[in-house]
Design a protein around this nucleic acid. Structure first.
Lengths: 248, 248
DNA sequence: CCAAAAGTGTTTCCTTTACACCCATGC
DNA sequence: GCATGGGTGTAAAGGAAACACTTTTGG
């Protein structure tokens, strides 16, 4: 058994690997994107037990000489076939219940990513069956996930939703140029609400460093309407004042 | 080497422990408390290399059959001698750079805790040299920490500071009964600012479920002054509207 | 009396919200 | 013309910030 003062970081004795169980460390990645004004998450259908056939988050083991962010970036590319750099990639929590994987002790670090509207068909469906699933299907309980991935996804959603309030990350869901309505539809999809278009317009244009004008206009959509101005991401990362999610 | 589809959670082959390096998983705990209106963090002085004599965060390995929260709670008790339950204990990030511990690969899960004003002398100084160090000493660079613990502490501070804005956690720094000025001094210590006493009073008493009256008064302090009413924590966890940190 | 801390009132400013209304396009 | 979406104006309501003022204690 270990004594009270055995630790790598506090006062400690030498570490002997045989004293400790094999712990595997993985990263699991919650990739969000928006398709047709609906928030989707990228999932992989499992090919063997446990949870054969169930949907699961992409992820995998960390390699010997990479840090956690690098592992997340690598797994995102390898497991999903998305080779474009994500618009955002960030840690949000760790999961280490002894029962979370029946095969062995696995501690996983949860990451969430934003990938701008990838052309509808889920990216590299080479060998792996990856698909974009509507978040509402999972929150509504109509699609079930493997392991504790429903908990992990719920935490990622909480994080993403609150990060949109105080950061400029919403723009990462859009392409390099976008209209203010595009941006508003990002908020509406992630928060699952409707926002007042006029107030949103003012709020976003007055916010310092959120978006910059490109001095171009879109052509009108199929059903008419005034052409919108195009904008691009500004330099700010924080949104001051914040854009608050409606209360209920 | 591992193949692209090796994973515990995506589509995967069987896991073979020999394919992976020994990874140790630890929890490191940032314990905050307030002494004399100053924010302090509990540190342990290291007894052997590396970083002999330097201050470090308490922490240690996770055990085979406990989850991460349990490990954090256990290490808090074992390493610091604090046997009272913390007022709050929460994860805030993970750290896994391959170079972060020169002896071996260690991934650590960062936790931050609030312990209400423990009688000034640092708790159980049985075998271990644990002390409360002013956060300002570390942020000012006058006290240096071992490993990447300065980064970890900085992240814990960011988390704690922003959590006070939108949650009722500030009350966890106080004892079971406290005055509104006590509570204000928590905000002032954590945010390192001065707040208007009158506005704070109103804000906190009008906020729903933050604090409840106890219908008692303190005796005046040594230097006179009107006796304050006593309050206790309410049922709410979230603060609506939030109490925003002054801009600069 | 004065100093000190608790607590209330008041005024000013700014943000948010709701919604009316004008603008520029396709059909 | 009409429908549709882009964008501005405006007025009411509410919170935040600054600060004057009252209350209750010790000395």
């Amino acid at each position: 058994m270990m004594s009270d003062n055995t630790s790598t970081t506090g006062s400690c004795d030498a570490y002997n690997p045989r004293d400790y169980p094999a712990v595997a460390v993985t990263v699991d990645i919650v990739v969000f994107t928006i398709v047709n004004a609906e928030l989707k998450v990228l999932l992989i259908q499992r090919g063997e037990p446990p949870f054969l056939g169930r949907w699961a988050l992409p992820g995998g083991f960390i390699h010997p000489n990479e840090d956690l962010d690098t592992a997340a970036r690598r797994e995102l590319a390898e497991e999903t076939g998305i080779h474009q750099a994500p618009g955002h990639l960030e840690q949000f929590g760790s999961y280490g219940s002894p029962e979370r994987d029946p095969r062995m002790r696995v501690v996983t670090i949860g990451y969430w990513a934003i990938v701008p509207d990838l052309a509808s068909p889920a990216a590299g469906t080479d060998a792996i069956h990856a698909e974009l699933v509507a978040v509402s299907e999972i929150e509504g309980g109509r699609v079930r996930l493997a392991f504790d991935h429903e908990t992990i996804l719920a935490d990622a959603l909480d994080t993403a939703r609150s990060r949109l309030e105080s950061t400029t990350l919403a723009a990462a869901f859009c392409g390099p140029e976008f209209t203010i309505s595009d941006l508003r539809r990002v908020y509406e999809a992630v928060w699952n609400t409707k926002l007042d278009a006029g107030n949103f317009q003012r709020k976003v244009t007055r916010s310092n460093g959120f978006i910059k004008p490109v001095n171009q206009r879109t052509s009108s959509g199929d059903r008419g309407g005034r052409p919108a101005s195009l904008w691009t991401s500004g330099d700010a990362e924080r949104l001051t004042p914040p854009l608050n999610m409606p209360n209920e």
